[in-house]
Amino acid sequence: MSRYVMTASAQMGPISKSETRADAVKRLVEMMREAKGRGCELVVFTELALTTFFPRWVIEDEAELDSYYETEMPSAATLPLFEEASKLGIGFYLGYAELVIENGVKRRYNTSILVDQTGTIIGKYRKVHLPGHSEPQEGRAFQHLEKAYFEPGDLGFPVCRGFGGVMGMAICNDRRWPETYRVMGLQGVDMVMLGYNTPFGHTGKHETDALTNFHNHLSMQAGAYQNATWVVGTAKCGDEEGSVMGGQSVIVAPSGEIVAQSYTMEDEVITAKCDLDAGNIYRETVFNFEIHRRPEHYGLIVERTGAVLPAAE
């Protein structure tokens, strides 16, 4: 018997610097209701869904910087989202900036959570592959200071059981790295959910930046196919405080095919009936890790090609 999960990707248009968390949550709730109205039991929101993309600015005042982070989840501002999820019987993925105090040390992460149909958090992930810079760069209209405002996630790439399958999470730049999908693929992941805020012009090279949307889809489609998993990619997009971010949110099948895609640069809900068993044919044939994957030979291949191995720690 197939395991179907009616799934929504809830793309967000820009969030201005002046918008409050209450404003953002209201928009998320409206899209959640729309997703439920289309029969969905899971809605995937974006990265940093509660605020504008603040790493684009140099923020020297620590109190101002702290204002963009969540210290608890749910908080008073986000509780309406959890309550609505429980009321409607729909789960969700949510990305946000997280601030925690551990052993007296302030730590900041780019984080996502997975919440089930009862409004209960069942999974948590902290972004591993941080893009951009740790120091401001000269000559840039907008900075990309994720390395300054976050530290790499310390939770690895965990999966959890929910919605009838094995669920995994990633965030934005993680989608470009094959290890992201493979670590979860080795754990039998059925669906990878990821939100992204991707500005055009992030490399500073027109030839590359012109391919932003192509590379966005390429990485998610390859990750889906090579690991026999659904991938749900949700953008925050449009002209946000003068910085234009890419959209084209997608739901990608384990075949690597895009089965749903947004067409606006605004709040938009797209849906697909995702069969979590659709990856089985690939797991049993082309990407049967047990009979085809040969990690014991990878070191030998590197040695024979003359590649330089990293020094042992």
Rank of each mutant, 00 (worst) to 15 (best):
V244D: 05
V231Y: 06
F150E: 01
A253Q: 08
R161S: 15
P136C: 07
C160Q: 06
R140F: 12
S134W: 09
A170P: 00
G188K: 09
P254M: 04
G256I: 01
P152H: 13
G242W: 03
M191Y: 11
G233T: 08
G188D: 11
E146V: 06
S219E: 03
R161P: 00
F142W: 14
S243C: 15
A235K: 06
L211M: 14
I171N: 00
L155Y: 14
M169R: 03
G223L: 04
V189H: 08
V250P: 00
K205L: 10
Q187A: 15
H215T: 06
G238T: 00
M245I: 00
H202M: 12
W177S: 11
A235E: 07
M169N: 01
A260G: 06
A148G: 05
R176C: 13
L155M: 15
E257I: 04
L211R: 14
R140L: 15
R161D: 13
Q261A: 10
V159K: 03
G242F: 04
S134N: 13
D190T: 10
Q221N: 08
K147R: 15
E179Y: 15
G247V: 00
V232Q: 02
G204D: 05
T212S: 10
E146Y: 05
C172S: 13
G188V: 09
N213A: 13
T208C: 06
G185W: 03
Q143Y: 11
P131W: 00
G188N: 12
A148F: 10
P131C: 06
V192S: 09
F157E: 00
P199M: 06
P131Q: 05
M193Y: 13
G195Q: 03
G246R: 01
G168A: 13
G246C: 12
Y181H: 14
E151V: 07
S219P: 01
Q221I: 06
V231R: 04
K147P: 07
V259F: 08
G204S: 03
G195R: 04
Q221S: 09
G185Q: 07
W230H: 10
H215D: 10
I251S: 02
R161N: 15
T203S: 14
G162C: 08
A141N: 13
V159E: 00
C160F: 15
E135D: 12
C160D: 03
G156Y: 15
S134H: 12
G238M: 06
